[in-house]
Nucleic acid binder design. Structure first.
Lengths: 215, 215
DNA sequence: TTAAATTTTGTTGTATACAACAGAAACTAT
DNA sequence: ATAGTTTCTGTTGTATACAACAAAATTTAA
């Protein structure tokens, strides 16, 4: 495993706190706050913050503080637009690179998800599902793009409380359908199913945002 | 205009030096070198370097130095893969948002390019051409992605000496054809033309890379 | 000569002090 | 009371010193 520097430690920690909405969207924090919270000096904190700004998770207000990025209707629209463009593409183009072993793991995850109670780790599993497709592309731009999207998507899911059991089950069934299509090498069908999945997911998010359930 | 901090100044300067290959791909530089070269202290230099690493233009080797990223066959393939995915999409989807005024500017650039000698500013003009399409999408992820791609594409063009007059003329004619299609609201045709343009461009780059003309 | 151990050197990693400044608060003149 | 001015406070911006460490160079032992 790679050497863990304080910079990466700070980055991981802060990013996690943002994605899981421990730091609320729109709120303002200071470097000093992070310093005492993480017990790490300013330099690594700043480097982490700079990176997070680059990734769009925070905005640095000069001489004022660090604003945790908001997640509004427009942002959600942009996120899903990109996913709708990229995911069908990677499935169609690189689906055939997914190793057999990965399917075994998928099915294990699915049975876990359908049997167990909802928990925070579900997000990671769901992220992981999407990530696989990007990783097999071996295109670092695609992988990096997924990385950017995933933290925002996770935040969106948490804010819209979409992790409720009923939705989790539906999502899992949709994932299952996609995987089944892949196993039959029906890439075009798998791509179409992923479009359906993303569109439903998007509409669900939009609905919840507009209902004012969040923010 | 936004406040220029030393961090952004260092970033702009170093990025320019990398894109225009003043710092050669594969070569190793140190923070101290940049410090004396730009006459800026380490802290802003580091922040700039961190950002450039994030964007893939450099790799920081712990305790060793800063490696200017290489541009090889695989990297070029990844770049064009993304462009081939994104550009037809933005043209098809957002072409109709391009204001009339922009077309006037396009034609002015084209006539300039076809009449004048090749110069460094041609790269900016070409970048600008592609950038317009991403900007009208108003999707920050797409715009950011273009930003990432453009510096790499520029490096590729410089390294393959593709700016030679004959290629410049061909490129300009292809751009002209795309713009003409847009003006007639033939978005599908414009998208197809952009695919042709990118594919030819890619093959040209591949050819030059393999001929060993560079690196 | 060769292999292992040690020292040295160069570079980034981290901590911290001070400067600059934006915005709020207090003050002043009318 | 209000508009303008000044002062103050909190936060980030920048500079710099020192620590940690990877790799090269040197030394040592056989």
């Amino acid at each position: 495993m790679a050497k863990q520097t304080l910079k990466t430690k700070a980055y991981d920690e802060i990013r996690k706190n943002i994605t899981y909405c421990k730091y609320e969207p729109g709120s303002v924090i200071t470097e000093e706050f992070l310093q005492t919270e993480l017990n790490i000096s300013r330099t690594p904190i700043r480097e982490a913050i700079n990176r997070l700004e680059q990734e769009g998770l925070v905005t640095i207000k000069p001489k004022k503080g660090i604003v945790i990025s908001n997640l509004n209707f427009e942002e959600a629209g942009m996120l899903y637009e990109i996913r709708l463009l990229l995911e069908p593409y990677v499935i169609r183009t690189y689906g055939n690179r997914i190793p057999q072993q990965t399917y075994v793991e998928f099915y294990k995850h699915f049975t876990d998800l359908l049997s167990a109670e909802a928990s925070e780790s579900d997000f990671d599993i769901d992220d992981n599902f999407h990530q696989i497709f990007y990783n097999v592309s071996q295109n670092s731009y695609l992988m990096e793009m997924n990385n950017r999207l995933s933290s925002q998507i996770t935040r969106l899911r948490i804010l819209t409380r979409i992790q409720e059991k009923s939705d989790l089950i539906q999502t899992t069934h949709e994932h299952l359908a996609i995987v089944n299509a892949c196993l039959q090498s029906s890439w075009e069908q798998a791509a179409e199913l992923s479009i359906e999945h993303l569109k439903r997911s998007r509409e669900n998010s939009f609905k919840l945002i507009l209902s004012g359930k969040f923010k």
